[in-house]
Nucleic acid binder design. Structure first.
Lengths: 202, 202
DNA sequence: CTTTTTAGATGATGACCGTCATCGTATTGC
DNA sequence: GCAATACGATGACGGTCATCATCTAAAAAG
């Protein structure tokens, strides 16, 4: 059952995409190689024709998921990012959501290669959120970067904390609402003081 | 090899404490029953004399770890909490640190009983951080609670994001420093506007 | 067209895991 | 003290897991 070289490449990409989603939903340890391949429409045998090990796929799937999040964030207004990120839809859609929020806790226990992918993914997200098109002074650049880093950690923390609470519990929603309100207020506050990161509308 | 009833109770507590630490270090799936019992100084056989299942222990160990964090936070100034929580020491000491930051990401995929323990643990932490000794108006109470919820999510996000980066990487430290600075600034800002949560010193 | 290569299927292997059966021994209740 | 009880040790069980060997058939190379 040989297939076209192009088809094989496409199958490989499909396996990576499927893995990225399943890992986000169930965690790295919650998905077996056989599970994964079945979900992608294959049997477990062909796996090692594409990847050297499960750990290899874990790193590649993480990178894929992270770059997808960065791509979807590109050109998004910070406030708009927060509205979408710190939302019930995002919290309840682990599989289709941000890889950092879904697997950040697991990444901390993974080997260096996965952590490196996460660092690169975070760096990309920061760049996507911080439009440095207008090149102001170095001090402003650093202040803007600090602010974006803080906003990202803040948003990630809100989603993760809300997800740790029982589904549909008042506390889960309260956390989300409280954080969204405070993050947006913080954004507005920074904008009024030194508009290093500014909304296009204002 | 029977032991005193008091000794057995003590052994059980020791197993729970060991489990809480190991789970924080390696995650729920990263610790086997045999591993765990060996780390506590026993063989795997006696496990089911103490717990009905591994899932049962997971819930109990989570509750134990969470209440420990709440107890250690009791009476702590919010700013002091942030200084300790958003620190390199805490980030690098998963096993001895906060259960929310270590297992919050995993809890999201666990059954309802564990999520319920997390919600209760979070609620306890909020109470420990929000001294409602002076009973002001309801509006102030709610505003203070919102602020504490936000501060906790913010701190948790900072530690988790930093942990997802390679050990000793500049980004890991940058995240921690940026967030600590911003969280403390936010605290100061709230204190100056409406001192619902106030430092004892000021 | 012939030969070589390789994506994917099938099946097996050894390690690990949660759980339970059994047993010894020391404590507890009488 | 005697009998009943139960903590903990030893060992075994199904099941799952990552990985590899083998086979196939079709695509690629010549």
């Amino acid at each position: 059952m040989r297939v076209t070289k192009a088809q094989a490449e496409q199958n490989r990409a499909h396996i990576v995409a499927t893995a990225a989603r399943l890992f986000r939903e169930r965690g790295y340890d919650g998905v077996g190689v056989a599970d994964l391949m079945a979900a992608a429409g294959f049997t477990h045998g062909g796996f090692y024709k594409h990847f050297r090990s499960k750990a290899d796929l874990m790193a590649e799937a993480s990178a894929s998921g992270l770059s997808q999040t960065a791509a979807r964030t590109e050109g998004l207004d910070p406030a708009e990012f927060v509205e979408r990120y710190v939302s019930r839809e995002h919290r309840d859609g682990r599989g289709d959501g941000c890889t950092i929020a879904a697997l950040g806790g697991d990444a901390a226990r993974q080997p260096a290669d996965i952590k490196t992918e996460f660092a690169a993914g975070i760096e990309n997200l920061l760049t996507a959120l911080q439009p440095q098109s207008d090149t102001p002074g170095d001090a402003d650049q650093r202040a803007a970067r600090t602010m974006v880093i803080d906003m990202l950690a803040h948003s990630v923390g809100a989603v993760m904390l809300s997800r740790a609470c029982p589904d549909g519990s008042p506390l889960a929603d309260e956390i989300l609402d409280a954080c969204r309100k405070e993050i947006l207020a913080s954004l507005a506050h920074h904008n009024s003081e030194q508009p290093a990161v500014r909304s296009p509308e204002t």
